[in-house]
Design a protein around this nucleic acid. Sequence first.
DNA 1: TGACGTGTCAAACAAATGTTTGAATCTTGT
DNA 2: ACAAGATTCAAACATTTGTTTGACACGTCA
Lengths: 221, 221
Amino acid sequence: MRSKSEIEAVAPSHDETRQLLLEAAGEVFAEAGFRNATVREICRRAGANIAAVNYHFGDKEQLYSEVLRYSHGKMLEKYPALLGLPAEAPPEKKLHAFVLSLLLRIFDTGPTSWHGRLMAREMIEPTAALDSLVEERIRPMSIQLGQIVGEILNRPPTDEGVRMCAFSVVSQCTFYKHCSPVMERLFPKQPDMDPVAIGHIADHVTKFSLAALKSFVEKKR
Amino acid sequence: MRSKSEIEAVAPSHDETRQLLLEAAGEVFAEAGFRNATVREICRRAGANIAAVNYHFGDKEQLYSEVLRYSHGKMLEKYPALLGLPAEAPPEKKLHAFVLSLLLRIFDTGPTSWHGRLMAREMIEPTAALDSLVEERIRPMSIQLGQIVGEILNRPPTDEGVRMCAFSVVSQCTFYKHCSPVMERLFPKQPDMDPVAIGHIADHVTKFSLAALKSFVEKKR
DNA sequence: TGACGTGTCAAACAAATGTTTGAATCTTGT
DNA sequence: ACAAGATTCAAACATTTGTTTGACACGTCA
């Protein structure tokens, strides 16, 4: 009769294989993208048999869908959209919280550090999963940012100018992940994206954006 | 004895096969990315035999390298970095020209319309070609933007604050391509990226950025 | 005309990949 | 202990892909 730890080391049991596959798939999909990720590599990392993907998820595509859903859920759990700020907080504070939480999600370290990279890939090469992801996760965030910007500009969130400004804000956040291979080559001495650096960028993006937004308010009076 | 146009319709000649491969490869690589693009599809579109890629370019990877070099060169030819503005022009005008030319390159229509998409892909999934592309093309542009921003802020281009602000400017431009699948789903009624829309975005990005930059000047005195 | 170099071709090759299959093993409940 | 369902396994399958190969066609030059 082997001890519990020996059993775990030898063979995963119950829903554990499913979870191991999810985690391993996240990594591999982030590194290689959907098409280039191989079921064999995912199963190798998960310590599972090749047929496990079909058994637990149906096929590779459904595994991918599950991974997207899972990772986005995990990230929003860890870093809620406004990091716990109440709706009545000043819009400037809310903008900073929105920016910081987005950056934290993108540059998360630890078991789900592949999230940011996976999202960046999905943007460039959308799969069938993007439709539901946009509706479930991205649109709510887009609406929220629109409300914050609209509050600062004292305009409805659906206003064209509000929308353009919201794009100007969110683009500054996503940039650091999308262009990181170029950035690493342009500025090899830039420090790692640790929480201090992330906070610094969030401060800059907020400051830059607020200054710009304030000028849009003045112009419109 | 067939006429000239009949010969062209039947079989490409001289360096024409090489050129057809370059163009077709640009399209396919932009659509599918380097790894997923197949030599068979490229040759099918070019009307060439499978072995032509190895004959003219050595292998798939060298073809890709050539395509990147070719397309970037074509774009800079068509839309020079400052669209012909002299170095003594006001920095505000130079900033607008930089932004507009970058957007025009990214959203070019016509035979090399795949350029923007190809560049977005290369950012996310760098190949060996990115190193030389960064040195030959991207770094000069980065230096130029640093100079423009430095001129506005009255600081050296290598200043940390100048660099952060330059990122804030360029990120607003690349965003529209990187996130276009999401944007199409969030706002399905947005108009196409015609020259009018591109000009509108360039105006907005310049205005937003100038307002922000002006506030950085004031703070530093 | 013959030699040489360039360019094209179809077939072959070796490797990789997601999915399927039937057998074996494990787990749970009676 | 046995039955039933769940889970895992190795092998097989069918398809795809970049590269190679040797033959052929074409153009140029002495």
